[in-house]
Nucleic acid binder design. Structure first.
Lengths: 337, 337
DNA sequence: TCCTGGCACTCCATGGTCCTCAGTGCTAAT
DNA sequence: ATTAGCACTGAGGACCATGGAGTGCCAGGA
């Protein structure tokens, strides 16, 4: 069983290993931390911790290194999220003020987060799923084509060119625009398909083909691509880390949008910090990394996630603090927009 | 002076070094290439080449390695751009067909280029500078705000929310939209500032403030941010390379948008391939990389650039071939849109 | 005059040996 | 239960010898 002191030893091992990146021995522990016992006692505790799988030795006659399970216990029970320093708070404010549009908010956020944590930061664009339609615009481009622009209440804009409509009259486009907006503005995106279902039957037959084309593109753009956009920054910070897996594998994983989406997607409890450690990640190339992620949104409505990817050997309290703070801050910015 | 044979030796040194990543010696050269002379003769030529600074020895009793100057001569006079294999041509076609909008074209292009070259690819969005206004749309968002969408003939869409207009009437917005489109659609972006100069004087005084706000945002979005968007892919390919500079420096440089823009921007002769080798790059962190870049556009109008960043020790003919082919292909796609 | 074979030389890379030392597990004493 | 003491282990660094790839130079040959 793990008594108080063994837990203290584990905490000390994690902290020292994160700092030094070297296996930590019993003597070093006794020196640096006030555990009140001798190295020999610590050694006994270490044997117990090793038997339970929380720490391991790279080889005999080396110090101990935390296992994934050890980090997990550390995160769950032995550490608390570290609040940001006031300097860091100021950095956040100065970084995010003055962003003119959603693209810029996201771009700045991801850079900010990577600089705060000195790791790779990931930011997902606000999801379309939970947002609602603010306005749909149809803009004739020449005689054959129409551009559709959908604006959501989260500031996100989707645009598409719709082609091959045959001859389209300006007035017909205007009619359709009006009809569309009456039908769906203010609705949540999930409600859009139902709301437009019987729209084609309401337009004059000679315009029906155009209406159908426009609607199919509309549905496609809202439903199919909804979680797609993700931005990342700070890959340079990976160069400093020596991974057990190859750096190449990690970089490759990070270039796959689908991987990133799943990585952020697997949070259990929304509005909470989620930490996935080492082998808890589904992706092969990320077995030696940890992911700290959080939801952001306005009010208690979650719009999307942000996260940080780094070596399992990371400063969890600090990283968690930064992720949480940035997530909250984005929420405020978006609410203010 | 450099006679034919010395040039042949230099070419052989570059080719072998690119293949093997090891200093190449006189004997190996004589074996692998049909130079028709003995190793001793090659050695003499190498001494000459070294005196002129085209190759160098990592240490005595090692083979020779090309210098930046050597690569430069190789690129300028000793190699020709390698046409793509038919498999590669097919890859390009299948990769780019089916892209629905500009974002997707760019995203696919950059992945394609990085896969073809196995290096880091950079793609710049079509510049606004040389494109012309297709349509300007003003969309009221609630009573106080207006969204402006500018669509260019290259498929690029800029959008901005304009805030703090006070009470804006729907009809006033419509009037302004019509006036704007009459004034600037079809114009090159460079001509826009002149064309809208006296527009405020033409609107009724009570709407003048709104008009001024909208115009200032319009000019700002077109002029100030024009070259900003750049996308990159394939950083994982850097992991395989051992740089003399640190990998971190290279990754950091590649995360700076401004650096990338300058990197692509410094082409001398548009519509041609540009190669910058090693120290020819202005940026510290990129001293051990080479950049191959090219313009793309429709007709003979250059819209923006694409490029590849890799180690100076790269397959120049192959990389140049891929960059040129992809640049041409994007041109076609954009023209067809 | 240019090329080539021969030769002595240089220096890196490889691998073996030895040694140090941090850290361990175990035992006996407190 | 804790601790001091001690023998043991294995990684890593220093040192050295060796092999070999590659060189520069020179003298002889086309």
């Amino acid at each position: 069983m793990l008594d108080e002191r063994k837990l203290a030893v584990l905490r000390a091992v994690v902290e020292d290993f994160v700092n030094t990146n070297e296996p930590v021995g019993s003597k070093a522990l006794a020196d640096r931390h006030r555990l009140g016992v001798s190295p020999a006692t610590i050694r006994n505790d270490m044997v117990a911790l090793e038997e339970d799988g929380y720490i391991t030795q790279p080889h005999t006659s080396a110090g101990r290194v935390p296992t994934d399970k050890g980090y997990r216990l550390f995160v769950d029970r032995l550490s608390s999220v570290k609040p940001l320093s006031s300097a860091e708070r100021r950095a956040i404010e100065s970084f995010l003020t003055g962003a003119v549009d959603l693209d810029e908010i996201v771009a700045r956020t991801v850079r900010l987060l990577s600089q705060l944590t000195r790791q790779v930061a990931i930011v997902q664009y606000p999801s379309l799923t939970r947002s609602s339609v603010q306005h749909v615009e149809l803009i004739p481009l020449g005689a054959q084509r129409v551009m559709m622009v959908v604006i959501t209440n989260t500031g996100r804009v989707e645009q598409r060119v719709i082609d091959g409509l045959g001859e389209t009259k300006e007035t017909a486009v205007n009619d359709l625009r009006g009809m569309l907006n009456r039908a769906i503005s203010g609705l949540h995106l999930g409600e859009v398909p139902g709301a437009v279902e019987d729209l084609p039957s309401q337009v004059p037959p000679e315009q029906r083909q155009m209406a159908v084309s426009v609607l199919s593109v509309l549905l496609e753009s809202l439903v199919e691509r909804r979680e797609e956009k993700i931005v990342l920054a700070g890959t340079a910070n990976l160069a400093a880390v020596d991974f057990t897996a190859s750096l190449r594998d990690v970089l490759e994983a990070l270039e796959e949008n689908m991987v990133l989406i799943r990585l952020l997607g697997e949070a259990k409890d929304p509005s909470m910090l989620t930490v996935r450690i080492g082998a808890e990640n589904f992706h092969e190339g990320l077995r030696s990394t940890s992911v700290v992620s959080a939801d952001y949104g306005v009010g208690n409505q979650s719009l999307a996630k942000i996260g940080v990817v780094g070596p399992t050997r990371m400063d969890y309290p600090g990283t968690m603090g930064a992720v949480r703070a940035v997530a909250r801050y984005i929420g405020q910015i978006l609410a203010g927009q």
